[in-house]
Computed example of a mutant assay.
Amino acid sequence: MRTIFVTDKGKIRQHNEDSGGIFYSQSGHRLAIVADGMGGHRAGDVASKMALIKLQEEWEKTSMIETAEQAENWLSNHIHEVNLSLYEHSKNNPECEGMGTTIVAAIITELFATIAHIGDSRCYILNESGFSQVTEDHSLVNELVRSGEITKEDAENHPRKNVLLRALGTETSVEMDIKTILFEEGDRLLLCSDGLSNKVSETEIVDILQTNFTIDEKANRLIKLANDNGGEDNITLIIVEYYLDGFMGDVQ
């Protein structure tokens, strides 16, 4: 298993409100997280960092995840706990009022990956069936596309493109999508904030993921391409490549 996490504040933003990382349970399983914070006066980076730290702390205390059901329950229970914690923090700290964050989190074992998400940070998979988006954005424009009111092409430049219908920490409870996919040798997962997905096309992503570059070179080329295409937002990504033999280390 090869993994890498990279984040960049982009070319325009003063601060990086994205957070992310790859963490290990006591049994060695990985939890990959990308969170894109939102809120005034730097409250977004408070929200994304709080979510990351709380999930990291719980994951590193976890001893065993053997089944998809266990993974789905873990993500559901702990993300709900984090949601309430963020909400209470925003109510008790006026400078953080209205803060929230997207989240896409994946528990990765040698047999499966279980992905939970809220908002418009995404997970993609590249496997023998091709390249596909695992998650579905919880955004206004995506609902307009789903209902047939606008086309996917219209959505690319829609004036309300950044309006989210769900976020972590903005209400006392939140709905999340959770799904488990088989993870097989040669498969690659990409988790990212919209600073990447809004600036780099799926074709460009696939072209880079399929190269013979090292995993860190792939990550850095994706970051550079997002910046070359404008870099108006923070850019965060995690790549996971599953191989049973050869180099088995992690790059972070």
Rank of each mutant, 00 (worst) to 15 (best):
T3G: 10
T3E: 07
T3M: 10
I4H: 11
T7A: 09
G10P: 03
K11R: 15
K11Y: 13
K11A: 09
R13K: 05
D18K: 11
I22V: 10
Y24C: 03
S25L: 05
S27M: 13
G28W: 15
H29C: 13
H29F: 12
D36H: 02
G39Q: 00
A43M: 03
G44K: 05
G44W: 11
A47M: 09
S48P: 03
A51R: 03
A51W: 04
K54A: 14
E57Y: 12
W59G: 01
E60Y: 10
S63R: 10
I65Q: 09
E66G: 08
Q70E: 06
Q70H: 06
E72H: 00
N73F: 12
S76C: 08
H80P: 04
H80Q: 14
H80N: 14
E81H: 10
N83W: 05
E88F: 08
H89M: 14
E95A: 15
E95S: 15
C96S: 15
T102N: 08
T102Y: 07
I103K: 01
V104G: 00
I108H: 04
I115T: 01
I118R: 02
I118M: 02
I118D: 08
G119W: 11
G119P: 04
S129I: 13
S129L: 14
S129Q: 15
F131H: 05
F131W: 07
S132P: 01
Q133G: 00
V134A: 05
T135H: 11
H138S: 07
S139P: 06
N142A: 08
N142L: 14
N142G: 08
E143L: 11
V145H: 13
R146E: 05
R146M: 14
K152A: 14
E153M: 07
E153A: 09
D154F: 07
N157D: 13
N157R: 07
K161V: 12
V163D: 02
V163A: 02
L164I: 05
L168A: 13
T170F: 13
E171P: 04
S173M: 14
T180D: 08
L182T: 04
E185H: 08
D187Y: 01
G195C: 06
G195D: 00
L196T: 06
S197W: 06
S201E: 08
S201C: 03
E204M: 01
I205K: 05
V206Y: 06
D207S: 11
D207V: 00
Q210H: 11
N212I: 13
T214V: 08
I223P: 12
K224A: 14
D228F: 02
N229C: 00
G230R: 02
G230L: 06
G231V: 06
D233Q: 03
D233R: 02
I235N: 01
I238S: 12
E241V: 06
E241I: 04
Y242R: 10
Y243M: 11
L244E: 14
F247S: 06
